[in-house]
Simulated assay, not measured.
Amino acid sequence: MDTRAATARENLQIILDIGEQMLSSGAEIGRVEDSIERMCRVLGAEAIECFAITYVIVVTISGENLPGLTEIRRVDQFDRNMHKLTLLNTLSRDICAEKIELKEARIRLETIDQASASSLYSKMFIFALISLSFTIFFGGSIVDALVSALIGVLIAPIDQFLLNKELNRFVQVFLCAASAGFLSNLAARIGVGISSELVSIGNIMIFIPGVIFTCAIQEFFSNNMLSGLTRFTEAIMLSLVVATGFVFVNVLLG
Protein backbone atom coordinates (compact mmCIF):
# COMPACT_ATOMS: atom_id res chain seq x y z
CA MET A 1 0.00 0.00 0.00
CA ASP A 2 1.46 3.41 -1.01
CA THR A 3 1.75 6.35 1.34
CA ARG A 4 -1.29 8.13 -0.09
CA ALA A 5 -3.53 5.09 0.42
CA ALA A 6 -2.19 4.53 3.93
CA THR A 7 -2.86 8.17 4.87
CA ALA A 8 -6.37 8.03 3.40
CA ARG A 9 -7.16 4.86 5.33
CA GLU A 10 -5.84 6.37 8.56
CA ASN A 11 -8.01 9.47 8.06
CA LEU A 12 -11.03 7.31 7.28
CA GLN A 13 -10.44 5.41 10.53
CA ILE A 14 -10.55 8.73 12.43
CA ILE A 15 -13.85 9.60 10.74
CA LEU A 16 -15.24 6.19 11.66
CA ASP A 17 -14.09 6.69 15.27
CA ILE A 18 -16.16 9.87 15.41
CA GLY A 19 -19.16 8.20 13.74
CA GLU A 20 -18.96 5.21 16.11
CA GLN A 21 -18.92 7.40 19.19
CA MET A 22 -21.79 9.51 17.86
CA LEU A 23 -23.87 6.37 17.29
CA SER A 24 -23.06 4.92 20.71
CA SER A 25 -23.88 8.25 22.38
CA GLY A 26 -27.44 8.22 21.07
CA ALA A 27 -27.28 9.96 17.67
CA GLU A 28 -29.91 9.01 15.13
CA ILE A 29 -28.79 7.04 12.07
CA GLY A 30 -29.42 9.89 9.62
CA ARG A 31 -27.18 12.25 11.58
CA VAL A 32 -24.36 9.71 11.76
CA GLU A 33 -24.49 8.96 8.03
CA ASP A 34 -24.68 12.64 7.07
CA SER A 35 -21.77 13.58 9.36
CA ILE A 36 -19.58 10.79 7.99
CA GLU A 37 -20.37 11.73 4.38
CA ARG A 38 -19.54 15.40 4.98
CA MET A 39 -16.25 14.56 6.71
CA CYS A 40 -15.32 12.17 3.89
CA ARG A 41 -15.74 15.00 1.37
CA VAL A 42 -13.18 16.98 3.32
CA LEU A 43 -10.91 13.94 2.94
CA GLY A 44 -11.22 14.35 -0.85
CA ALA A 45 -13.79 11.64 -1.57
CA GLU A 46 -16.06 12.21 -4.56
CA ALA A 47 -18.13 9.02 -4.40
CA ILE A 48 -19.29 8.12 -0.89
CA GLU A 49 -21.50 5.26 0.21
CA CYS A 50 -22.30 5.20 3.92
CA PHE A 51 -24.63 2.72 5.59
CA ALA A 52 -25.26 2.62 9.32
CA ILE A 53 -27.55 0.66 11.57
CA THR A 54 -27.57 0.36 15.33
CA TYR A 55 -24.58 -1.98 15.51
CA VAL A 56 -22.61 -1.49 12.27
CA ILE A 57 -21.20 1.32 10.11
CA VAL A 58 -20.02 0.58 6.56
CA VAL A 59 -18.28 3.28 4.47
CA THR A 60 -16.91 3.11 0.92
CA ILE A 61 -15.14 6.11 -0.61
CA SER A 62 -13.32 6.83 -3.85
CA GLY A 63 -12.12 9.85 -5.82
CA GLU A 64 -9.88 10.99 -8.63
CA ASN A 65 -6.96 11.48 -6.25
CA LEU A 66 -8.14 8.99 -3.68
CA PRO A 67 -7.90 5.18 -3.84
CA GLY A 68 -11.10 3.20 -3.35
CA LEU A 69 -11.44 2.26 0.31
CA THR A 70 -14.04 0.32 2.30
CA GLU A 71 -14.15 0.19 6.08
CA ILE A 72 -16.55 -1.62 8.41
CA ARG A 73 -16.93 -0.71 12.07
CA ARG A 74 -18.72 -2.83 14.69
CA VAL A 75 -20.43 -0.71 17.34
CA ASP A 76 -20.80 -2.55 20.64
CA GLN A 77 -20.81 0.14 23.31
CA PHE A 78 -23.78 2.32 24.23
CA ASP A 79 -23.63 5.05 26.86
CA ARG A 80 -26.40 7.43 25.66
CA ASN A 81 -24.37 10.51 26.57
CA MET A 82 -26.04 13.66 25.21
CA HIS A 83 -23.23 15.95 26.41
CA LYS A 84 -20.68 13.84 24.57
CA LEU A 85 -22.87 13.83 21.46
CA THR A 86 -22.97 17.63 21.49
CA LEU A 87 -19.16 17.79 21.62
CA LEU A 88 -18.87 15.24 18.81
CA ASN A 89 -21.29 17.23 16.64
CA THR A 90 -19.17 20.32 17.18
CA LEU A 91 -16.04 18.36 16.27
CA SER A 92 -17.56 17.05 13.03
CA ARG A 93 -18.68 20.56 12.05
CA ASP A 94 -15.17 21.92 12.69
CA ILE A 95 -13.73 19.21 10.44
CA CYS A 96 -16.25 19.98 7.70
CA ALA A 97 -15.45 23.71 7.98
CA GLU A 98 -11.75 22.75 7.73
CA LYS A 99 -11.00 24.49 11.01
CA ILE A 100 -8.87 21.53 12.13
CA GLU A 101 -6.96 18.73 10.39
CA LEU A 102 -8.12 15.15 10.72
CA LYS A 103 -4.99 14.17 12.64
CA GLU A 104 -5.69 16.94 15.13
CA ALA A 105 -9.23 15.61 15.40
CA ARG A 106 -7.97 12.36 16.92
CA ILE A 107 -6.37 14.27 19.81
CA ARG A 108 -9.54 16.27 20.32
CA LEU A 109 -11.62 13.08 20.15
CA GLU A 110 -9.57 11.56 22.98
CA THR A 111 -10.08 14.74 25.01
CA ILE A 112 -13.84 14.57 24.44
CA ASP A 113 -13.89 10.93 25.52
CA GLN A 114 -12.11 11.74 28.77
CA ALA A 115 -14.01 14.95 29.51
CA SER A 116 -17.45 13.43 28.96
CA ALA A 117 -16.91 10.38 31.16
CA SER A 118 -19.18 10.51 34.21
CA SER A 119 -17.54 10.16 37.60
CA LEU A 120 -18.90 7.77 40.19
CA TYR A 121 -19.98 10.66 42.43
CA SER A 122 -21.96 12.33 39.65
CA LYS A 123 -23.64 9.00 38.85
CA MET A 124 -24.54 8.56 42.53
CA PHE A 125 -26.09 12.04 42.59
CA ILE A 126 -28.05 11.42 39.38
CA PHE A 127 -29.33 8.03 40.55
CA ALA A 128 -30.40 9.54 43.88
CA LEU A 129 -32.14 12.48 42.20
CA ILE A 130 -34.07 10.23 39.78
CA SER A 131 -35.13 7.87 42.55
CA LEU A 132 -36.22 10.63 44.90
CA SER A 133 -38.12 12.58 42.22
CA PHE A 134 -40.11 9.66 40.84
CA THR A 135 -40.96 8.25 44.27
CA ILE A 136 -42.55 11.57 45.18
CA PHE A 137 -44.19 11.83 41.73
CA PHE A 138 -45.91 8.45 42.18
CA GLY A 139 -47.25 9.34 45.61
CA GLY A 140 -44.51 8.28 48.01
CA SER A 141 -43.89 10.04 51.31
CA ILE A 142 -40.77 12.05 52.12
CA VAL A 143 -39.41 9.04 54.02
CA ASP A 144 -40.05 6.76 51.01
CA ALA A 145 -38.31 9.28 48.75
CA LEU A 146 -35.27 9.58 51.03
CA VAL A 147 -34.93 5.80 51.28
CA SER A 148 -35.27 5.51 47.50
CA ALA A 149 -32.56 8.16 47.05
CA LEU A 150 -30.26 6.28 49.43
CA ILE A 151 -30.77 3.07 47.47
CA GLY A 152 -30.00 5.01 44.28
CA VAL A 153 -26.71 6.09 45.83
CA LEU A 154 -25.89 2.46 46.72
CA ILE A 155 -26.86 1.15 43.28
CA ALA A 156 -24.52 3.54 41.43
CA PRO A 157 -21.25 1.82 42.49
CA ILE A 158 -22.82 -1.58 41.77
CA ASP A 159 -23.74 -0.40 38.28
CA GLN A 160 -20.24 1.02 37.75
CA PHE A 161 -18.60 -2.20 38.97
CA LEU A 162 -20.67 -4.35 36.60
CA LEU A 163 -20.00 -1.90 33.77
CA ASN A 164 -16.25 -2.23 34.31
CA LYS A 165 -16.61 -6.03 34.21
CA GLU A 166 -18.02 -5.65 30.66
CA LEU A 167 -20.88 -8.04 31.32
CA ASN A 168 -23.74 -8.51 28.91
CA ARG A 169 -25.97 -5.44 29.21
CA PHE A 170 -29.07 -7.47 30.01
CA VAL A 171 -27.24 -9.32 32.80
CA GLN A 172 -25.93 -6.02 34.14
CA VAL A 173 -29.38 -4.42 34.21
CA PHE A 174 -30.94 -7.54 35.78
CA LEU A 175 -28.38 -7.60 38.61
CA CYS A 176 -28.80 -3.88 39.29
CA ALA A 177 -32.59 -4.19 39.30
CA ALA A 178 -32.45 -7.22 41.59
CA SER A 179 -30.09 -5.37 43.96
CA ALA A 180 -32.41 -2.36 44.06
CA GLY A 181 -35.41 -4.63 44.69
CA PHE A 182 -33.61 -6.40 47.52
CA LEU A 183 -32.61 -3.12 49.19
CA SER A 184 -36.15 -1.70 48.92
CA ASN A 185 -37.63 -4.82 50.52
CA LEU A 186 -34.97 -4.77 53.22
CA ALA A 187 -35.71 -1.10 53.97
CA ALA A 188 -39.45 -1.82 54.23
CA ARG A 189 -38.84 -4.67 56.70
CA ILE A 190 -36.58 -2.72 59.04
CA GLY A 191 -38.36 0.65 58.74
CA VAL A 192 -41.81 1.64 59.93
CA GLY A 193 -44.18 3.12 57.36
CA ILE A 194 -41.91 2.53 54.38
CA SER A 195 -43.57 1.20 51.23
CA SER A 196 -41.31 -1.11 49.24
CA GLU A 197 -43.51 -0.59 46.14
CA LEU A 198 -43.20 3.21 46.20
CA VAL A 199 -39.49 3.02 46.97
CA SER A 200 -38.98 0.53 44.13
CA ILE A 201 -40.87 2.62 41.56
CA GLY A 202 -38.33 5.40 41.99
CA ASN A 203 -35.41 3.00 41.59
CA ILE A 204 -37.03 1.34 38.57
CA MET A 205 -36.99 4.65 36.70
CA ILE A 206 -33.17 4.65 36.81
CA PHE A 207 -33.09 1.71 34.42
CA ILE A 208 -36.10 2.43 32.18
CA PRO A 209 -34.65 2.88 28.63
CA GLY A 210 -36.51 6.08 27.80
CA VAL A 211 -33.79 7.49 25.54
CA ILE A 212 -33.57 4.26 23.55
CA PHE A 213 -37.35 4.21 23.07
CA THR A 214 -37.35 7.86 21.96
CA CYS A 215 -34.54 7.15 19.48
CA ALA A 216 -36.54 4.20 18.12
CA ILE A 217 -39.58 6.37 17.43
CA GLN A 218 -37.33 8.97 15.84
CA GLU A 219 -35.83 6.33 13.53
CA PHE A 220 -39.33 5.22 12.47
CA PHE A 221 -40.23 8.78 11.48
CA SER A 222 -36.92 9.08 9.60
CA ASN A 223 -37.75 5.93 7.57
CA ASN A 224 -34.87 3.99 9.12
CA MET A 225 -37.14 1.06 9.86
CA LEU A 226 -34.45 -1.55 10.57
CA SER A 227 -32.67 0.61 13.15
CA GLY A 228 -36.01 1.69 14.60
CA LEU A 229 -37.14 -1.91 15.06
CA THR A 230 -33.78 -2.85 16.57
CA ARG A 231 -33.88 -0.05 19.10
CA PHE A 232 -37.57 -0.56 19.86
CA THR A 233 -36.93 -4.27 20.54
CA GLU A 234 -33.94 -3.36 22.69
CA ALA A 235 -36.06 -0.95 24.75
CA ILE A 236 -38.79 -3.56 25.26
CA MET A 237 -36.26 -6.25 26.23
CA LEU A 238 -34.49 -3.97 28.72
CA SER A 239 -37.82 -3.00 30.28
CA LEU A 240 -38.72 -6.67 30.69
CA VAL A 241 -35.32 -7.39 32.25
CA VAL A 242 -35.80 -4.53 34.75
CA ALA A 243 -39.24 -5.82 35.70
CA THR A 244 -37.93 -9.38 35.99
CA GLY A 245 -35.16 -8.27 38.35
CA PHE A 246 -37.58 -6.62 40.77
CA VAL A 247 -40.20 -9.40 40.54
CA PHE A 248 -37.54 -12.08 41.09
CA VAL A 249 -36.47 -10.51 44.38
CA ASN A 250 -40.08 -9.99 45.55
CA VAL A 251 -40.92 -13.63 44.84
CA LEU A 252 -37.70 -14.83 46.47
CA LEU A 253 -38.30 -12.83 49.65
CA GLY A 254 -41.97 -13.79 49.75
Results as ranks from 00 to 15, higher is better:
1 M>V: 05
3 T>D: 09
7 T>A: 15
8 A>Q: 00
9 R>L: 10
10 E>S: 14
16 L>E: 15
19 G>P: 15
20 E>Y: 13
20 E>H: 12
21 Q>Y: 13
24 S>C: 13
34 D>G: 04
37 E>F: 10
38 R>V: 01
40 C>E: 06
40 C>F: 06
41 R>Y: 00
41 R>A: 03
43 L>R: 02
46 E>W: 04
46 E>K: 09
52 A>H: 06
53 I>N: 15
62 S>C: 00
66 L>C: 04
78 F>D: 01
79 D>G: 00
80 R>W: 05
84 K>I: 09
85 L>C: 07
89 N>G: 02
91 L>M: 02
94 D>Y: 02
97 A>M: 00
100 I>L: 15
103 K>A: 11
103 K>R: 15
104 E>P: 12
111 T>M: 14
111 T>E: 13
117 A>L: 07
120 L>F: 04
122 S>Y: 12
131 S>R: 10
133 S>E: 06
133 S>T: 15
134 F>W: 04
134 F>Q: 02
136 I>E: 07
137 F>C: 03
139 G>K: 04
145 A>Q: 07
148 S>N: 15
149 A>D: 05
151 I>T: 02
157 P>N: 05
157 P>T: 06
163 L>C: 04
167 L>R: 02
167 L>V: 05
168 N>G: 01
170 F>V: 05
170 F>E: 00
171 V>F: 12
171 V>Y: 08
182 F>E: 14
183 L>A: 13
187 A>E: 04
188 A>R: 08
188 A>N: 08
193 G>S: 08
194 I>M: 11
194 I>P: 00
194 I>D: 12
196 S>G: 08
202 G>E: 04
206 I>W: 06
207 F>C: 03
207 F>I: 08
214 T>A: 11
215 C>H: 12
217 I>T: 13
220 F>K: 12
224 N>R: 15
228 G>M: 14
235 A>M: 15
238 L>P: 00
242 V>D: 01
250 N>S: 07
251 V>R: 13
252 L>T: 12
254 G>A: 14
254 G>C: 10
